[in-house]
Amino acid sequence: MTTLEVRGLSINYLTDDGVALNAVEGLTFSLEQGRSLGLVGESGCGKTTVMLSLMRLLPEAGRIVNGQVFFEGRDLLQISEGEMQAVRWKDVSMVFQGAMNALNPVRTVESQIIEAMQLHNVVNSKQDARKRAGGLLELVGITANRGKQYPHQFSGGMRQRAVIAMALACNPRILVADEPTTALDVMIQAQIIELLEELQRELNLSLVLVTHDLGVVAEMCDDVLVMYGGTVAEYASSDTIFNNPGHPYTQRLLKAFPDIAEPGSDLASIPGNPPRLDSLPPGCRFEPRCHVGNGEPICLEALPPLVEIEPGHYVACHLVKGK
């Protein structure tokens, strides 16, 4: 069953001078229950904007100008703010980047988990809430009695676990995690990856992983959506993306990523810089850095549509033909 489906989502940011900057254009993907999707891209590619728009938490300057976001068949962009509040955290929950450093320092970890449950009325009594909070902590690998401690008594890895427990407080169907392993040490990173994998299996969660780290995506995700300059460059199964990439950007990104299994192999970075929102190229947004095209007129003029070149493999490139 499809839990989350996004169709043609476009988002603009309005500057102070009233100019609309196109941050996301024509984003489309779907997520089955119990599967995981990796949203990959460099900083400034719009992945965080997409994540916030799913929750309708865009900053004031952000406007959703087009598209639909279906959660279990209901368009989240059409319901009232009150209904949306019931969806957030309860149906679709989120682990924010840096949230582990944003826990309230003067409240115990347990009470912060309980707060989420009480606000959404998923518990009847204080005892019930305590019991569930304890259970959640155990689930993420923290002994239940440590819930009585304060965030500063937790190490970085444990705080990240606590944040994940908080996100799971109301039994969400979908968990969106924004860079959940960034800024953690390698071994802690591995622990968190393992934890998320286990949780996904046990709770039949759908997972959206927003990250710049291709390695983490390859380890964890079933499907991958590669974003570039606010558009989808390529969308396919993880295996296809990493072994048979269609889009020139994906190909180059993979070449730029060092593989520990092949030490000493060549790396090639992508020349140039990602486009800035206020100076997007008129045609394909990757065209100025592309190594396949040679300034073909169509690449310079038109934004390439997302085309299914083989079953389940979508590429947005004028120069890639279907099989």
């Binding site: 938490l57 009150g82 955290w89 989120m94 707060e115 606000l119």
Partner: peptide, 10 residues
């Protein structure tokens, strides 16, 4: 923001 109490105001 995420934790904002559901108001259910139609």
């Amino acid at each position: 923001l995420m934790l904002a109490k559901p108001l259910l105001v139609e």
